[in-house]
Write a protein that binds this DNA or RNA. Structure first.
Lengths: 277, 277
DNA sequence: TCGGCGATAATGTATGTACATAAACTTTCG
DNA sequence: CGAAAGTTTATGTACATACATTATCGCCGA
């Protein structure tokens, strides 16, 4: 074995390790703190080791790190394995790679903080409360007739829905939705007496992409009445447009009372937590 | 050559293709629509082909797809290449893999919508406006003395900052920040006359993780005065706690006027857009 | 019938080898 | 001296091979 590499699994010895001299116990002047920890697959150990150097600030942003061949002999594994580890770290945004030039620590990714947006039904259910919804209005018309969905050609048939979501009987979210009937014609026959529109759509048209905009607005008198708050109460407004194969599927406006609903999430570098350092 | 595989690059022929019989022009009854398109690396072509089947609904959620050996001969590439493509799609959340059982289309990931949260300075700059900030208050004290940072032991030295951010001279965001002096002692000597605290911290302590909470609140009279709006105006409140190697670094409250600031982002399945289908 | 247990089929990891590709560097030539 | 052409170096992709790891399936016996 190579000393520090690969314990924890069955750990039978394979052929001959790569370059590394047969029996270097302490490795000249190289940073031994970069040693592997024997937990899990080799490429994961290397990911952890490298990410650790970065997180601990030993390898600073912009700095160039050893090339694959050097890392390979440093860690005593093949270049393939190093390549896999480094390529994954690059894909996760820790590193930037340029041919011939080398591999560099990415200049930090300040813009990658992210906030997950969940379905209201899931949120309510997870809080252990009773979730209900009620359809307040539903009509079928063509785009441009009274309502205009900007990203859709005029005349396209659409279904409009308005509904309210409740948590333990208290209204917490108002929803106004447009659905593209060209994409999901079956929706016309769905009564939405059991399953909520958002859920129905997600089950029907999976794997879509979406745009979001989140803003804070003061409740209008009408909305305030529906949500059971005073006019002017701060509300979170979420606009979501969902696309499937570059065709708009649905456009929704959610409005939720500020102190009954919030977006939250521990985030960023979910990969870093995966690395558990 | 294998017919459909790999054009667009230089496309010299390598050794001998894998299993596939030498000269099957149209492949029995197999879905030929799964054909590769010759754009980019083979494993990317396979990713696109497979993701396409899923997005077009030909392979439905929960359904099992052919094993690596089958895909390998279906597409006329080695198992390694198929493995790389499929493993990446799994890592991106499209597929779920279980040893011995096989590979399955993931049951859609409704909860993965995500919003990026950016630094206000970047946002203002990108809109082509002039960004400025002003420190309104700054003091150094110990946790528990007047202010309590819940995730930090009492007595820990902290720096408190209060500042305002401007876009073209209009105040758009208020910031109240606590900084853990045990982690970043140098901050005590930083005047913040040029670089804003958030930027300074990001440059100093990169690669951290963070928790966020976003809510809508009505502006208090004091805040309204600072932001130049009427009391009660709906504001977006963002709370962010940043950690580095599981130690809290900074805790911030941002407050921004609802109609001067919004969070937005096209999101989810950024991998799907990368696949450009 | 049920429990255990072994065969088996799928994915997962690691290495070797060979070239391709891109960009930085060097040399050459006008 | 500067642009073009060639060289070198680091990463990128592909394939072959070999073995590890795990559920699942099915058999067999109590």
């Amino acid at each position: 074995m190579q000393g520090l590499v690969r314990q924890g699994l069955t750990g039978q010895d394979r052929g001959g390790g790569p370059a590394s001299q047969p029996g270097d116990p302490a490795q000249g002047g190289l940073p031994l703190d970069g040693a592997l920890d024997g937990r899990g697959p080799l490429f994961d150990q290397i990911k952890r080791a490298v990410a650790g150097q970065i997180l601990r600030g030993r390898w600073q942003a912009g700095q160039r790190l050893p090339n694959e061949a050097e890392l390979s002999s440093l860690y005593g594994v093949s270049r393939q394995t190093v390549h896999k580890a480094i390529a994954l770290l690059a894909r996760e945004g820790f590193l930037v790679r340029r041919r011939r030039a080398g591999t560099f620590v990415a200049t930090s990714r300040r813009d990658r903080f992210a906030l997950p947006i969940e379905d209201i039904g899931d949120v309510v259910a997870r809080e252990g409360r009773v979730y209900e919804f009620r359809i307040r209005d539903r009509r079928s018309l063509r785009n441009g007739e009274g309502i205009r969905w900007p990203d859709l050609p005029d005349g396209t048939p659409i279904l409009t829905l308005e509904c309210l979501h409740f948590s333990d009987g208290t209204p917490i979210q108002h929803e106004r939705r447009l659905v593209n009937l060209d994409v999901v014609p079956e929706v016309i026959d769905e009564p939405f007496d059991v399953v909520a529109p958002s859920r129905w759509l997600v089950d029907r048209v999976p794997w879509s992409s979406a745009d979001h905009t989140v803003r804070a607005v003061n409740a209008t008198a009408e909305m305030a009445a529906l949500l059971g708050v005073e006019a002017g109460t701060a509300c979170l407004s979420i606009r979501r447009q969902t696309m499937h194969l570059s065709r708009p599927v649905t456009l929704v406006h959610f409005l939720s009372v500020g102190d009954r609903f919030s977006l939250s999430g521990s985030s960023i570098t979910d990969s870093a937590t995966e690395l558990n350092l």
